[in-house]
Nucleic acid binder design. Sequence first.
RNA 1: GCGGAUAUGGCGGAACUGGUAGACGCAACAGACUUAAAAUCUGUUGGGACUUUGCUCCCGUGCCGGUUCGAUUCCGGCUUUCCGCACCA
Length: 809
Amino acid sequence: MKYSIHTDEKWQKKWAEENLYRFDESKMNKKLYCLEMFSYPSATSLHCGHWYNYGVTDTWARFKRMQGFNVFHPQGFDAFGLPAENYAIKTGIHPKDSTDKCIATMLEQYKRLGGSYDLNYFLSTCDESYYKWTQWIFEKLYERNLAYQKEAPINWCPSCKTVLANEQVIDGKCERCGSEVTQRKMKQWFFKITEYADELLKCIDQLDWPEKTKKIQKNWIGKSTGSLITFDIDNGMQLQAFTTRADTLYGLSYVVIAPEHEDVMKLVKPEYKEAVQKYLEQAGKISEIDRISTVRERTGVFTGSYAYNPVNGKKVPVWIADYVIATYGTGFVMAVPAHDERDFDFAQKYHLPISRVIVDKNGAEKELPFCEHGKLINSEEFSGLTTEEAVPAIVKKLEKVGKGKLTTMYRLRDWLISRQRYWGAPIPIIHCPYCGNVLVPESELPVKLPYNVEFRPDGESPLARCAEFMNVKCPKCGADAKRDPDTMDTFVDSSWYFLRFPDNKNDKEPFNREKINQMLPVDKYVGGQEHATMHLLYARFFTKALRDMGYLDFDEPFQSLVHQGIILGPDGQKMSKSKGNTINPDGYIQKYGSDVLRMYLEFAFSYTEGGPWSDAGIEAMARFVNRIESLFDAFEKLEETSTDYGEAEKELEFVRESTVKAVTHDVELFQFNTSLARLMEYLNALNAYLHQAKPDKRFVKTCLDCYVVLLAPFAPHLSEELWEMLGHQGSVFNEPWPNVNEEVLKNRDKVIVIQVNGKLRGEIKVGVQAAKEEIEALAVQKVQSYIPEGQKIVKTIYVPNKLVSIVTK
RNA sequence: GCGGAUAUGGCGGAACUGGUAGACGCAACAGACUUAAAAUCUGUUGGGACUUUGCUCCCGUGCCGGUUCGAUUCCGGCUUUCCGCACCA
């Protein structure tokens, strides 16, 4: 035989005919939900990253299936989104048409990849039958006050002409097109993810996720415990400030409000209006142009107002400064220049008083600003307390007069989901002049995305220009009303698709509760790390919100998570069209077959690391396949002989069993490179045995059977072919994964290494039964000559099956 | 700036809870087959030393130090590269 793309086609056809990978809903006790992050149907074909994610994870899924799990391995498309729309703007091809076409092409490619998918559970987020339920979830969140509309300063990309989520702004630039992001105020829909900040944070520890990803998510949520302190202003207002250092309150020198704070103008005394106005204008510009700069000079302006320090009534000026941001905490902070770097710089610049109230633990007056914890001075009755003691004590004092309380603040902001774009799920809201925001009744869902729309962006939502779509009657009062012209962020679509997969045909509800309670959480989720603070956080939020609404009964969607690394171009740079270093997998499949490509990706990298593509590496994999084939050819030519079970057989059996053990262990942990290395070693051993004087054909046969079963998850098509060649009926994927015969591993003489004073001095071969004392005695005898003259053995350390370490003195 | 990760031959990468560092593969070199080449097969391959070319000795996992009979692995301090956050009060 000769493995090639034709072998792939033969078996793909067969698998499809026999529906080999169908999921058996009747065997829920051994279910295993294996999921790769679904992909975006893009104009180009599957790239190396897809193969690396889907092909390699498929190996794991197949391995689990052979281990007897009822593996649920679905596949679908995250089909809404900007690229299709941008493509449409460029070419004039409607997003729906280009997306449909891409999906058809990509499904064909998935087949060539040899994935063990059950496509009965296929879904695509742009189908009405899917986005109906995306809208339904929006409505449920709205009813539960987890969706709200707010006029807000938002990130606006002037080139994409759309709003961006915080997560889509990288260094002040649009993550897609790289244009400078500007600020605008618009009425936008938000999901109240902050409501779940605490739980999202707490549950992270229980997850079997990469530590790094957990850390990123924790930092993104950014919990900080501190206190809220209320300040009276001389105009009668009250403002609250959040601080983690209530202990420094006696060092208060001024207070600051963010320029974007909604109450800013109320604080400005008439004679300062002009100066403030000028400053605000300037500040607005800076935040647009210079937000990337790390060491931007802090600027500010005095309002004319004063605030009273709640601990001692001392009067301090109220400033406006751009180093305070409106969206974190209360947008109003207390400034203690002696013990905060930012306040210190600012105070120096504007000649505000700086007074020390903290010394270090030993009472030493360290150089200012001194920002560490320490001991209080000049703080009335609190002097002498440590930071840790003083914070609760001061807050307690303030609490008595209603001016302070301990609290928690999060860095996490609510999730802005409105997009002024066409290709997404419409927001199921009707704006009625009399009733306000009204939900589209559930019976009228989905709010269909109209086909004939001018989708070229001009700063307005494309849907706003579609009268047919926009004009409706209010479901409550029947008055003329307008639909919401925006669509939802595509991350909304992908925040619940894993819930839809197991029940993708349900037209009564998004998913059946019993069913998904059985099917979820996802047992193994595989995808890129770039989603750490977006998709992976949103999906967790959706799961928790739906749980609290009673639609499901688990807390976390993805129990175990793995990130694949990134495949770089041959030059070690990230693949990109502009650099011209992209690798298209198609040609390689054509030339070598999909199993070779799959095994190359598995063997050449450590899975979570990735690395540069190498043509030499893929050649090596093709050679590996050739070597397997010539081994099988040699086997077929072998005459029926039988030999007694001897040393050679014993050795090969040992290799076989240790391979089973190692491969089982390594695949489980996504260590495909070492798994394949073991299979190569086993192959070498088989070859050596076969080419010796008297190989036993029947014995070889049992070893080859085992070999093909072990190889199957890595090279599914090739293995089917070999399995057939060995005379078996039916698919190799119906074979059980072999158990390790531990007896064989034990029944082998051990080589024990001997060290004297840490240096390797020899080795001995001992029988399986040898006792510790016996081995030690043999070892001492063996290395007698290495024991320095006049010294005695003071200690002998025996590491079972490995070494004897002798210490002399 | 803060936080996290990383560092092993010419290269990709192995090494389980501290126990023969460099598995497996690539590249390279030598040999076999061949008129020749390719392919294939078989060897060698971290560096160094030799007046014993050897089941020899010494050095070697970014750098400096420590713990240990023994450290790629643990601890302390640097350096490198990558990543996350970046006025978060």
